[in-house]
């Protein structure tokens, strides 16, 4: 299962942290540790974080005695980091990160760091349509997008009925996706094109 989803920027400031199982360390120390390791890695390196420092740090192993793995992807100024155990496919998680980012991109047009900063709650709602309780809920971007819109609409209506005088607020408008990054892992071989 997925143990944690972390988003932080290239300066190590957390933008979204979600833990599905309690970890030994506080989320801040974990983010800092992973940040310090990830930020020194070039884009040409692989997307799996595996460092001697990390092994003792994560410490925790899953039931089969396998170590937790840290899979990350870098998009512009943001790092998306998933901490997973061996029940998840490493390459599949890379795709899942892509799915998540695409979903974010659908909800906020051309998603950028500021969107996550100011719509911290919205980002969590979108994540909850992809992953629930550490298990993957849905991988189809269309499906995710539809669910996100529905939930946003429900919240918006509820907000409007509670505050009849307010203008807008609650939920984000949908403006359709423009991020053209197909799912290479699942559908085809990736040929050197990276998400960056």
């Amino acid at each position: 299962m997925i143990h944690a989803v972390l988003i932080f920027n290239t300066s190590g400031v957390p933008r979204l942290t979600k833990f599905y199982t309690p970890l030994q360390q506080s989320s801040q120390t974990l983010v800092q540790k992973i940040y310090s390791l990830v930020s020194s890695r070039q884009a040409s390196l692989c997307n799996f974080l595996d460092a001697p420092e990390l092994e003792s740090f994560l410490g925790q192993t899953d039931d089969n005695g396998e170590k937790l793995r840290v899979v990350y992807r870098n998009y512009a100024t943001l790092y998306f980091v998933f901490v997973v155990d061996s029940a998840e496919s490493e390459l599949g998680i890379l795709d899942l990160i892509q799915v998540f980012v695409e979903s974010l991109d659908r909800a906020f047009e051309n998603v950028c760091e500021l969107d996550l900063v100011y719509h911290f709650d919205e980002a969590h709602h979108i994540l909850s349509e992809v992953i629930q309780g550490g298990l993957v809920l849905e991988t189809n971007v269309e499906e995710i997008d539809r669910a996100v819109q529905e939930a946003a609409k429900a919240r918006k209506e509820s907000f409007a009925s509670a505050n009849p005088l307010s203008l807008g607020g609650g939920g984000v408008g949908s403006r359709g996706g423009t991020l053209q990054t197909p799912l290479h892992w699942i559908t085809d071989r990736l040929t050197g094109v990276r998400a960056r």
Binding site: S39, S40, R41, Q42, A43, S44, A51, P52, E53, R196
Partner: peptide, 29 residues
């Protein structure tokens, strides 16, 4: 490889340690 990387994206910090994981003390240990 690292040069070609730089043409692609913004530079990453910590290039010194990068070029040479052999120098990383934890790795050496």
């Amino acid at each position: 490889q690292s040069l070609s990387q730089y043409s692609q994206g913004p530079s990453t910090p910590g290039i010194v340690t990068l070029n040479n994981p052999s120098m990383n003390p934890a790795y050496r240990l």
